[in-house]
Write a protein that binds this DNA or RNA. Structure first.
Lengths: 221, 221
DNA sequence: GGGGCCGTCAAACGATCGTTTGTTGCAAAT
DNA sequence: ATTTGCAACAAACGATCGTTTGACGGCCCC
């Protein structure tokens, strides 16, 4: 079997330890983030999810309306925070004459790395990487409608700092940086965190490598 | 709904036009590639799949043993060809004193782009991007066991052409290039093929941008 | 001509899916 | 004290899942 993760010999599926803190809605969202990251949106069933959250099966439909609405809420909760931080960081440097490409990339990348800081935020980056790969047009429209203006503001600032690039050239490069970012954040690839460095240090290294790589890729002639 | 693609008002799910060419096994593999790319491994059911292929429901289990074995075969068929081409291209330049970083990246990237050339090979890149995002350890082991030696040979050649980089630094950068490659190939992002350029031209542009970006990112001090 | 494979088929299997229902406990409002 | 509304629960709904079964027809080989 290639895809589905393990299934224990006894019992049908893993029941992660019950998370008993917070309200019912929050416990569902937390468990959803974990299981969506591990097994995907289709792969994680509401029964696994509600068992992990320690709530009743019907609670998801009661509080969110449907499984799809739950998925939407998982996205909205994290992306609202992420894009707020991005815009706040951008606002501090936008238009300033002394702003460097490193500053701008920092503003773009750092909030994504910080998101991975708190307890389960790191899982969300995997959920996001999955969603990107799903390639769904509905997701595309959702992201564009809700967070498109953030990307537009950053692109405008990139254009200001890289005036030598044509619009098309700039789009291409930002696209490639986004790909490298998503890849690095989701943690697939050769580079794994070594056991002797802390999670925080590892994130810091990731950011450093990513920013240097992106600066070189963006600003080459 | 965020994720599942549309479902038509009449009838339960889309039934793509029947593909009536080739053997039963080949038709199943073709339809699997299409539906796995569109709906994911869990999302695409054997009933959708066999209907699209124009074969009986039981044919999958008869010819492949199980759905999971089918997934495995979808991967193996394309990756065998991809890595053969990569190794052939690498063999022509490995160790040669006049080899440039561009040559090496070309050998690495071009076969992936060429894979997208034939009929449905482009779909496979989406399947692959999905599988990367799934983050499954079983997949990781499958790739490492069957195609790890390819990555190792390329890494050795990268190390020869970039002697100034530490081993860790090199791994990081190759990882980021891989992320950009996967992202560009899977086609999520701002850049979409314009209707006035051919598929071939678009692939060529993708390769050019990607190689230039990667060279800059890899070789910066 | 008859026996053994092979590929295909409709039909069914049990399991699991997302969702709905009806009931219960409980606290605030009347 | 009674009513109202919310949240949680067990249980069931019909649909769909991956897989298995047994029968049917065509083909080659003895």
């Amino acid at each position: 079997m290639l895809k589905r993760s393990f299934e224990p010999a006894c019992g049908r599926w893993m029941v992660p330890p019950v998370n008993s803190s917070g309200s019912t809605k929050e416990r569902i969202l937390g468990a959803a983030e974990l299981l969506f990251a591990q097994r995907g949106f289709d792969g994680a069933s509401l029964r696994q999810l509600t068992t992990a959250a320690g709530v009743n099966l019907a609670a998801v439909n009661y509080h969110f309306g449907s499984k799809d609405k739950l998925v939407e809420e998982v996205f909205r909760r994290r992306l609202d925070a992420l894009n707020e931080r991005r815009l706040a960081a951008l606002a501090k440097i936008a238009g300033a004459p002394e702003t460097t490409l490193e500053n701008l990339l920092e503003a773009f990348i750092r909030p994504a790395l910080d998101l991975s800081h708190d307890d389960s935020g790191a899982l969300f980056m995997r959920v996001l990487a999955r969603a990107f790969a799903e390639h769904d047009d509905t997701l595309r429209q959702f992201l564009s409608a809700n967070y498109g203006h953030v990307m537009r503001q950053f692109t405008a600032e990139f254009a200001r700092l890289l005036p030598q690039l044509s619009k098309e050239e700039l789009y291409w490069r930002i696209d490639l940086v986004t790909g490298a970012l998503t890849h690095a954040m989701s943690g697939f690839g050769m580079i794994q965190r070594k056991s002797d460095v802390s999670e925080h240090t590892h994130r810091e290294q990731t950011a450093q490598h990513l920013i240097r790589f992106a600066v070189a890729g963006l600003s080459h002639p």
